[in-house]
Structure formats: structure tokens, C-alpha cells
Simulated assay, not measured.
Amino acid sequence: MLTIDGSFGEGGGQILRSSLSLAMITQTPFRIENIRARRRKPGLMRQHLTAVKAAARVSNAHVEGAELGSTELVFEPGPICPGHYEFAVGTAGSTMLVLQTVLPALLLLTESGGESGGESGGEPSEVSVEGGTHNMNAPVFEFLDRAFRPQMQALGAEVSFGLEQHGFYPAGGGRVRATINRGFDPSASLELVERGRLESVEATALLAHLPAHIAEREFAALAEALDVPVDETRTVTLEESRSPGNTLIVDVASENVTEVFTGIGRKGVRAEEVGEETARAVNAYLAGGAPVGPYLADQLLLPMTITSGGVFRTSECTPHTATQLALIPRFVDVGFERIDDEHGTLIRVEK
């Protein structure tokens, strides 16, 4: 059985989630040790446990060690089954990370059937996850929908995401839904090395049970700190949220790609700081010239691995991306070429 050391690389939950995805796709059983060893609270938290249970349901897996706080886990996948699934984190833990754990396996099932051994390849799937939708250190819904989804479409998938309710820390209660009508095209490849001309920069502030001046201050700080003008601002007031919350979202649309940057409002951090930190991330992306931002890069590698590869340039090879480059070949016969230069990092996926 394949053994994964959960303390290597970024040493967090990504290693577990990617291992689950890869195990389902390749039908490879694995044992992971030292889960989240580099985090302040090692072991499985509720969000990670939900991802394990979701993967187990989707792939009819045998699992050992699936309990809160566990630092070791055995996962033996069975056939992937399309269908309608509902999962709940039970806290404000990220729904997006749970969804991204099972999404690649379900996207592998094409109209002509998948490689997983499932009996009903081609049947549409729907996955609903309850918990947090706008979290620190996790992709928000808008990133998944407006930055990640178009690249999945470029690889042949037909998938839609719906945000049914926003969920902020600490109450959670958000709900996101993914509907998969068509899986990946195994012959598709992704080429994303040029950003193309900048088309628009738009900012949205989400406010739940908070005063409107927070959005106004975030927009003002963002506009002052950005190296390019903001074309449009929009404030969305959320009455249905279970707890107060605030997220600043900046969409940077270019000719060949849209990137999404976020600042999460939190207790003790002034609105101006949220605007400024978001502006710094956008400025760094625009200055580098690469089309793929630092957070989208690691999320493209796994889909490219199970299709026909391709090449992209990213502004930064983060520890998460470097970890993916090391982890994926443990499960899949694939080659990666990484070239770092003054323009960022070029990554080629060779099948």
C-alpha cells in the first residue's frame, strides 16, 4: 500500500485532500501518516473529516482512522459512483475544499464512461456541501466559479456552481452546489502562458449584518493602493447569513483568463487594511505578467494530470504548488517540467 507522509511540503490539509482525489481517480489505496503535522492543531479537523467521508461515499471506500484529531488514515477506494450527494461540515469549515476533493473524480466520468470502473459513467452528478463559503486560507465561491470553472470547461467539462446561502465564520450555515453534466475530455489539454490584454477590474464587497461604511472604506483603500483603476464597484448586502461577515472580491478579467482575489474581513482588522492587502495581491499579479495566479496554479495540476496535460505560466510557485508537483507522481505516471525565470514559473504537464 502506498504510504504518504502528511508532514512533507506544505504539511497541511492539501496533502490529504489531493491524496483522496488521486486515490479515487487511480483506484490506489493509501495510508497517510502525520496528517497536518505542520499546523497548530495537527490531525483531522471537522472540515478534513468531512472531505474524507465525502470521498468515501463517492468511491465506496473502506476507511480506517476517520475520526476527529486522527493523524493517520487508511483509504481504500472502490468504484466511483455518480449521483446526488449532500455533505455538511457542521462548522464554518470550507465547503469549497470539501467540494474540490470529490470534484475531480466525478469529472472523470465522461459520457462514454470513466476509467474508474463505475457502472454508470455519464450520469449527471450533483454535490451539495454546507458550511463556510468565504473563509480565510481557502478559495471562496467566486474564485471557484469565475477563475477555476472556466479552466475546467477548457478541459471539456460541463460543470456549474451555485451559491445557495453564504456562510461566514463562526456560524457557517452556507451552502454551495455543484452540478456536473459532462466530465473531462481525456484528449483535452490546457495552454495558458499569455494573459492577453487587461479587460476589466471589478470589486465586490459582501456585507452580512455589518454597516455599509465598511464596504465604502474597503473600496476607497483598494482604489488608492491599486496600480490600475477599478472599473466598477458593487456592494452586496446579505440578510440571510447566520453571522456577520465581510469579503472583498476583486475580479481581474484579461483576454485569456480571469483571476479572482479576495480579502476577508475579520475582527480587529480595519476595513482599510482589507482593501490594501487585496490591492497588494492584485498588484503583484499584474506586475508579473503571468496569466495564472498563485492560488489557481496548484488547483490546475490535478485536472491537467488526468486529461492530456498542457502548459501554463504562474506568477509564483507556492509551497502548495510545489507540494502538488511532488505528490501527484506518487499516484500517476506523469512528468512535470518546471522553469523559473523573471516572468514567474512555467509548468509543463507531460502525459
Rank of each mutant, 00 (worst) to 15 (best):
M96V: 04
M96F: 04
M96Y: 03
L97M: 07
V98K: 14
L99R: 11
L99D: 12
L99C: 07
L99P: 10
L99G: 10
L99H: 08
Q100T: 03
Q100M: 03
Q100F: 03
L103Y: 08
L103S: 11
A105F: 12
A105Q: 12
L106T: 05
L106I: 05
L108S: 15
L108R: 14
L108I: 08
L109I: 13
L109N: 15
L109Y: 15
L109R: 15
T110D: 14
T110K: 10
E111I: 08
S112G: 07
G113V: 00
G113F: 01
G113Q: 01
G113E: 02
G113L: 02
G114E: 07
G114T: 02
G114I: 02
E115K: 15
E115V: 10
E115S: 13
E115D: 15
E115Q: 13
S116G: 11
S116E: 07
G118S: 06
E119L: 11
S120N: 09
S120I: 14
S120L: 10
G121R: 01
G122E: 00
G122F: 00
E123I: 15
E123G: 08
P124G: 02
P124K: 00
P124F: 02
S125Y: 04
S125K: 04
E126R: 12
E126A: 10
E126Q: 09
V127I: 07
V127R: 03
V127S: 07
S128T: 09
V129P: 02
V129I: 06
V129K: 02
E130M: 15
E130G: 14
E130H: 07
G131N: 09
T133G: 00
H134A: 11
H134C: 10
N135R: 00
N135Y: 03
N135E: 01
N135K: 02
M136C: 14
N137L: 09
A138L: 01
P139I: 00
P139K: 01
P139V: 01
V140W: 00
F141S: 13
F141K: 15
F143N: 11
F143Q: 06
F143H: 09
F143A: 06
F143P: 08
F143W: 05
L144Y: 10
D145F: 11
R146S: 07
R146F: 04
A147R: 01
F148L: 08
R149E: 04
R149A: 10
P150M: 03
P150H: 08
P150A: 01
Q151L: 10
Q151R: 05
Q151C: 04
M152Y: 06
Q153L: 15
Q153D: 14
Q153V: 13
A154I: 05
L155D: 04
G156R: 05
G156Y: 06
G156F: 06
A157C: 09
A157L: 07
E158D: 11
E158Q: 09
V159R: 11
V159M: 10
